[in-house]
Amino acid sequence: MYETQYHRASSVQDAVSRMEAAGEGKYVSGGMTLIPTMKQRLAAPSDLIDLRHIAEMQGITVSGRSVRIGAATTHYDVASAAALKAVCPAICSLASHIGDPHVRHMGTIGGSIANNDPAADYPAAMLALGATIVTNKREIAADDFFTGLFETALEDSEIVTAISFEAPAKAAYQKFANPASRYAMTGVFVARRDNGDVRVAVTGAGANGVFRHGDMEAALVANWSPDALSNVSVDASELLSDIHADAAYRANLVKVMAKRAVAAA
C-alpha cells in the first residue's frame, strides 16, 4: 500500500470538507474492496476519509412498505433486520450472501453501491427495486446511478448517505457464484409490483456492468412464471468472457438464474 493519510469524519459535512481539502482523496466505509485494492497498489488515494462512524448514515427504517437504509449500514445488519425482512426478504437474503461473515460485518451498502463493481450484488437489487440513491446533494434514481464498470453518477466529494425504495409485492435474488472469488458470476434480481410492473436486473454478467433485461421484464409482465422466460433470448455479445465463464455460458446463467428467481419470489 502506498502512503496515505487517514481521517475519521464525524459528520457528512465534516467528511465533505475533508475530501475537498484533500488532493486525491477517497471515502472509505467498510473498506472491504478499497483496502485490498490499495494493498495491491491498484489504488493510491492521498487521503482516506472514514465514513463508518457517522451516526446519520447508520440504520434501517421501515415505514409501511417504504424502506430507507443508511449508507453505512453493514451487510450483516441488512441481512438480519427483522423489520426489513418482513417487507422485502429478498434484499436481506441478498445481503446474507455477500462475501463472507467477516466481510458482512464491515462492508456497507453505500460502499458497495458507490464502488459499482460489475460483480457486486447490491447494484442488481437497486435497479430491480427501482431504488433511489440519496446523497448529500440530491436523490438519484438507480436507473441513472450506475453508469458503467466501477462508474456511477456520483460527482467529486459527493457521498451516498442512504438508499430508499418501496418494497415490491414479490422479489428474489439468485446468484451463481464464481467458484474462486465467490462474487456473482451471474446474479439476477427480479421484482414485481402490485400494479404488475416487473423489473429484472442482472449483475456479474454484463460487459458494461449491471443492467436491466427489457425482454425478460416484458415476458414476465405478460406472465409472471419461470416458463415465461423460456423463449426470451439473452444476447451474449453484451456479456463478459473470462477464464471462468464465457459469454455464451453467462447468457445461459442469466436465464437460469432469472427463472429461479421468479420461482423463489
Binding site: 467458484p179 474462486a180 472469488s181 465467490r182 477464464i243 471462468h244
Partner: peptide
C-alpha cells in the same frame, strides 16, 4: 476447481484466490 492459467504472453491469470479456486468447506 483448481487450475493454473497463463495467457499466451506468459502472464499468470490465476495469481490470487480471486481467480484460483481453492476448495472451501461448502465445496
Amino acid at each position: 476447481l483448481e487450475g493454473v492459467h497463463y495467457d499466451p504472453s506468459g502472464q499468470l491469470l490465476t495469481a490470487s484466490y480471486m481467480d484460483y479456486a481453492m476448495p472451501r468447506a461448502d465445496d
